[in-house]
Structures are given as structure tokens and as C-alpha cells.
């Protein structure tokens, strides 16, 4: 018998006590609904992102170029997804046209957009669609500058899951990488970008 059939057989034997007529829906699940977004959620999002030692800059679309330039200071080699909107893209950015991992390791920072932001947890989610780059592009460089529009902020995790498309790869980011593995002392910045700057526009 194949391992598959044997395991499925063992599972069925183990579940002999479950009536054959029972369906999954018969096991009742009562769960909290997603919370609707309010205008306070943008403020909450900014606060909670900052709680994780990420830098949050709130600005209007008009101010964005100035703040973007400041966020990219000290990043001589900047990577940008090839489909990053032109109005965001600094002239000297290196476009990611399938750079090798070793090449990615030579850039100093990366600039992307995001799929959405979650107020309650201070999370940004990338679905690696247009403007967000493939997964490696936001991982290997040491600084990640991420532009989030205020209308992309949702209230809570349930609302985020409802909006996201699971067939896409997803990266949920809540502050820069961190470890508390040595005597529980929190250290920000281990393997991912050690600096995370979120520009919240709108």
C-alpha cells in the first residue's frame, strides 16, 4: 500500500467515532467579523508601525518627493522593481531585471509600494504585484523604503485576509527583522533589511 493510502486509511480508522453523516459545516465555528475601517485607522497604523522601531513618515502626495529623497539618503545603490510607477522612481535607481542573488547583495536599499497596511498590528503586506518587486528584492538589501497610500490601510487582520489573493506569494512585514534569542534582549535587524522606512502618503 502506498504511504498516502496507508495514512488516509489510518486517519479514517482513527475517526471511527465521527458519524458518517457529519459534514465539516456541522462543526460550528463562531468567529469575530472583520472590523470596518474608520479614519482613525491611518493614525493607528502609523503609531503601531513606529512601535516596532520602523520609521514612519506621513506626507501628502506633493511632499512625497522631498521625503523620499530623505529616506533614500545614504543609499548609493538603490534597487527598484522594473514596474515601479515612474513618478516614484529616482533617475539613478537600478531596475531589478532578474538580478542574481549575488548582484542583489551588492545594492544598498530597495524602494517598493505595498498591497495594503493593517492598522491594528502595524503590518505592511506585499503581494509582490506591480511596484512591489519579487520576494528576494525586498529581502537581501539592507534598507527597505516602502510607500503605502492611506487608502490602502485596513482595520485588522481579518479585513486584510479578506482582501488578499492567496495564490500570490505574500510577505507580511511588521517592523524590521528582530531577534530576542540572546537573554531575551531584543535586537532589531538580523537577516532582513535592518532599516524599514514606511512613507504613508495621503
Amino acid at each position: 500500500m502506498s504511504a498516502r493510502d496507508e495514512i488516509l486509511g489510518r486517519v479514517r480508522t482513527a475517526l471511527r467515532d465521527v458519524p458518517g453523516t457529519e459534514t465539516p459545516a456541522d462543526v460550528a465555528v463562531d468567529r469575530p467579523e472583520p472590523r470596518p475601517t474608520t479614519h482613525e485607522d491611518v493614525e493607528l497604523f502609523a503609531e503601531r508601525v513606529a512601535d516596532y522601531k520602523a520609521t514612519v513618515v506621513r506626507c501628502t502626495p506633493e511632499d512625497l518627493p522631498t521625503h523620499l529623497a530623505a529616506a533614500l539618503e545614504g543609499v548609493p545603490r538603490l534597487l527598484a522593481p522594473a514596474d515601479l510607477p515612474e513618478d516614484l522612481r529616482p533617475a539613478d535607481a537600478i531596475l531589478d531585471e532578474q538580478l542574481t542573488t549575488a548582484e542583489l547583495d551588492t545594492v544598498d536599499g530597495v524602494l517598493t509600494t505595498a498591497a495594503l497596511g493593517i492598522a491594528e498590528t502595524g503590518t505592511i503586506v506585499l503581494d509582490h504585484g506591480p511596484g512591489q518587486g519579487r520576494r528576494a528584492a525586498t529581502l537581501v538589501p539592507d534598507r527597505h523604503v516602502c510607500v503605502v497610500r492611506t487608502d490602502q490601510v485596513v482595520a485588522d487582520v481579518a479585513a486584510a485576509v479578506a482582501r488578499l489573493e492567496p495564490t500570490r506569494p505574500l510577505t507580511w512585514i511588521s517592523g524590521p527583522s528582530a531577534t530576542s534569542d540572546i537573554e531575551l534582549d531584543r535586537v532589531e535587524g538580523v537577516h532582513g533589511p535592518r532599516t524599514l522606512i514606511v512613507l504613508l502618503v495621503g
Binding site: R48, T123, R134, R135, T171, S174
Partner: peptide, 21 residues
């Protein structure tokens, strides 16, 4: 687990994504 509202990174993937990962 860690007593955080959300852990720093969560990755989700569904099989193979061409050109990514």
C-alpha cells in the same frame, strides 16, 4: 507566542510562482 501584535515576518506561498522564489 512572542507577545507581539504581529511577528516581524510572515511568508505565505502557494506552490511555485514563476520568476519569484
Amino acid at each position: 507566542s512572542t507577545g507581539e501584535r504581529m511577528n516581524p515576518y510572515t511568508s505565505m506561498w502557494t506552490g511555485v510562482t514563476p520568476g519569484d522564489g
